[in-house]
């Protein structure tokens, strides 16, 4: 017996899931909105905090000659691929009640998640900042010096010249933070209405067979990645 189109739609879980997902997004489902906002809040905070540390650190590494500089840069590049669960585990141990920072009471809080993601992306933003500054070639540095800049003026000029590449470093850091699931799962604990974010919600709902909700959140996560990518493209075209 040949099935009609409607029957295929009704039978197919994936297509059903997609349709319901679109409905969830269009109807601004409160759960979806709440989880999305929290995800953005946690990862944007982490990116901001990490940038505050990583940008000056990257500039310091680039502008100063010291022993082991090459090794530091290699280490940073290795840490680009730092496994998220390892960071999660380490931060968990630090923040757990018996850990050295247990008194802060940050385990299973959004603040704890921010800390973990910050640690996760500091190496990435630092390393990419060094690369961004290294993109300023030798002749340009000579030009800046020969134009009569003081040391501080040189640094400011080089940072300004590398501004788009540095912004790209920050965006890539944000991209890594919002897409990761390891640290937020371990540190946040995926508590509904408190520490549940896009990635942990997808993980949970998928394992529960609640595909439409997962797909809705997946679409949102992809959209965020897409927006970041578009900005990145515009920025790198400069």
């Amino acid at each position: 017996m040949i099935k009609g189109m409607n029957e295929i739609f009704q039978d197919n879980e994936i297509i059903q899931g997609f349709i319901q997902a679109i409905e969830l997004i269009i109807s601004l489902d409160p759960d979806v909105i709440e989880i999305t906002l929290r995800s953005l809040y946690v990862s944007l905070s982490a990116t901001f905090t990490a940038s505050l540390i990583a940008l000056p650190l990257g500039a310091y590494i680039y502008f100063n000659e010291f022993r082991g500089k090459r090794a530091v840069i290699n280490l940073l590049q290795t840490l680009y691929a730092l496994p998220t669960v390892i960071v999660g585990l380490a931060v968990f141990l630090m923040l757990s009640r018996s850990g050295p920072l247990g008194f802060l009471g940050m385990l299973f809080t959004p603040q704890g998640m921010v800390v973990a993601q910050t640690i996760l992306i500091i190496p990435l933003i630092t390393g990419l900042t060094v690369s961004a500054l290294s993109g300023i070639d030798r002749e340009m540095r000579y030009t800046i010096i020969s134009l009569g800049s003081s040391q501080l003026q040189s640094i400011v000029t080089i940072l300004r010249e590398a501004r788009f590449a540095i912004l790209a470093a920050v965006l890539l850091g944000f991209g890594r933070a919002i897409a990761e699931v390891g640290t937020v799962m371990l540190i946040g604990g995926n508590i509904r209405g408190f520490t549940r974010v896009l990635t942990t919600a997808i993980a949970l709902n998928t394992s529960m067979g609640n595909f439409s909700f997962s797909i809705a959140l997946g679409i949102i996560l992809l959209s965020v990645a897409l927006v970041v990518n578009i900005i990145l493209n515009v920025v790198q075209g400069r």
Partner: peptide, 15 residues
């Protein structure tokens, strides 16, 4: 250095 100037082989302009 501020009393001198130098032009390099490769044209260098800032963005």
């Amino acid at each position: 250095r501020r009393r001198m100037g130098m032009l390099f082989q490769k044209p260098i302009v800032f963005n």
